[in-house]
Write a protein that binds this DNA or RNA. Structure first.
Length: 471
RNA sequence: GGUGCCAUACCCAAGCGGUAAGGGAAAGGUCUGCAAAACCUUGAUGCAUCGGUUCGAAUCCGAUUGGCACCUCCA
């Protein structure tokens, strides 16, 4: 069974066939490090992690490259927008370099806490200005650029398939629809975009580099083209990002990359849908700024969020609410409890042989390889946990196998050991056992609620009473 | 103005032509002194509405209604 992936370029499910036999080149758009990532950003990285894990379990080797956008470029294609790094730097009285390194670190903290497998290569835009300049030079030599108002622009009329990814109807598109966007009069075609700025209306930037066109800084899109080709070659397998990147960012990346090389650039384009909050699209500038840290401060485990995302398909919008997150937490804890019960009964990892067990394994693979249908494969997990026809070893083994894709840290679950509790708690428990013995239910109940207030749950089982820390 | 996506039980959410996965919540049960925990059971004759195609449609087509996103800030 091959891996089926939905390719935005063809708008179809396609069997995945890497350019080089089993060695996959994967490029994922990384963060702009001017602020914390919100959980909507994180959802996209989780989808990419899932894709990578699915490729790995399917036997591919994955060479994963992710960029860090740390260059203080303007956010628009014209000479408009604002420089987010500069803005945050002046707001907090730090340098742009400090801002970039601070938020890069914060990003990878989230990345690790969510148990995402780190990219093979993480590349910073500011370390690759040279490659960007070289790429712009190539475009210039091939006649795809012009200089206007001091900036170097890419001319979309110099190629004949601009907008093929987004299937843009160039005639029908409006420019500067949004109020806060200004029309850039320097452009020959309103869809042209800047490759290199030397004259910005914002004047001097903290980050500037010398170039053949003068001292300045790169445009918005050039870094991904330059770095992906530098690390993965001029044609590679998969490029991912959020769905919002299709009409502008990825469209422009394709235009400049293929214009420079004359070759097809990326074989498969995959895009993650948005996470929505009550107001619609999640945003850093309006409403509550939801970060992983905020979720944790409210008592959630990063794995709760990971489980929550697994519950929806990556190509569907997913509605976030704390109620839904609590649902995910409960479900995840139930899974953990069941797995721990298996361990308590002595479950161990074995080689699967029986067809009943192998059937679950292949069903799981089929679902996950079918364009990452994690909601369906989560149902497979529950099927395994509830199937009395499987041995505990088979169940445990299957759970660990599934977790290669889920990444829910099932391997960290351990047998319930004799937990140690503070002596005062143990004393209360002992008193309650005595009270129960003499059928003093009133005292027993009050001791139970006292322990509850201390954060301990009393569990009465046929074999006696014990304590458990409240989760 | 243009383009695209979506509408499935109380909530979240799979399914993509062959007779509705899963989770959470809820209810009932077993257990218990009572609880909690655990375990078991139950759940849409129905997939926004109205037409159409088909032996057969949640799945295809058309219309309507509602929601969301994109068209130079955000994944």
């Amino acid at each position: 069974m091959s891996v089926l992936l939905y390719n935005t370029m063809s708008r179809q499910l396609e069997p995945f066939q890497p350019i080089k036999e089993s060695d996959v080149g994967l490029y994922t758009c990384g963060p702009t490090v001017y602020n914390y990532a919100h959980i909507g950003n994180l959802r996209t990285y989780l989808f990419e992690d899932l894709l990578k894990r699915t490729l790995l379990i399917s036997g591919f080797k994955v060479n994963h490259v992710m960029n860090i956008t740390d260059v203080g470029h303007l956010t628009g294609d014209g000479d408009d927008g604002e420089d987010k790094l500069e803005k945050m730097a002046s707001k907090t009285n730090r340098t742009v370099w400090e801002i970039a390194s601070y938020y890069t670190e914060a990003f990878f903290k989230d990345y690790d806490e969510l148990n995402m497998i780190r990219p093979t290569t993480v590349c910073k835009a500011t370390d690759h200005i040279e490659q960007m300049i070289a790429l712009i030079k190539r475009l210039e030599e091939r006649g795809h650029t012009y200089i206007s108002g001091g900036n170097v622009y890419f001319s979309i009329d110099s190629i004949d398939d601009y907008g093929k990814l987004a299937r843009l109807d160039l005639q029908a598109l409006r420019t500067a629809v949004r109020d806060d966007v200004e029309v850039d009069g320097n452009k020959k075609n309103s869809k042209d975009f800047v490759l290199w700025f030397t004259k910005s209306k914002h004047g001097e930037q903290a980050m500037m580099w010398d170039s053949p066109w003068g001292r300045g800084f790169p445009g918005w899109h050039i870094e991904c083209s330059a770095m992906s080709m530098h690390y993965l070659g001029e044609s590679f397998d998969i490029h991912c990002g959020g769905i919002d990147a299709i009409p502008v960012h990825h469209t422009n990346e394709i235009a400049q990359s293929e214009a420079a090389t004359g070759k097809p650039w990326v074989k498969y384009w995959l895009h993650g849908e948005f996470l929505l909050d009550e107001t619609g699209k999640m945003s850093k500038s309006k409403g509550e700024f939801l970060t992983l840290g905020l979720l944790e401060s409210k008592g959630f485990d990063p794995m709760d969020y990971r489980y929550f995302c697994l519950g929806g398909h990556y190509r569907s919008q997913l509605k976030f609410s704390f109620e839904s997150l609590e649902t995910a937490r409960t479900a995840r804890r139930n899974v953990y409890d069941r797995i721990q019960n298996l361990l308590n009964q002595g479950a161990k990892k074995i080689a699967l042989q029986r067809s009943e067990a192998l059937a679950y394994q292949s069903a799981f693979l089929e679902h996950v390889q079918n364009d990452l249908n994690t909601p369906r494969s989560l149902a497979d997990l529950w099927g395994v946990l509830k199937d009395e026809g499987l041995s505990i070893d088979e169940k445990y083994t299957l759970c660990l196998y599934f977790d290669q894709v889920f990444g829910l840290r099932f391997d960290t679950i351990t047998k319930a050991e004799e937990q140690t509790f503070p002596p005062e708690a143990m004393a209360l428990l002992q008193q309650r056992i005595e009270a129960k013995k003499v059928k003093d239910w009133a005292l027993a109940d009050s001791l139970r609620s006292e322990l509850d207030a201390m954060g301990y749950v009393v569990k009465d089982t046929p074999s006696g009473s014990s304590l458990e820390k409240k989760m």
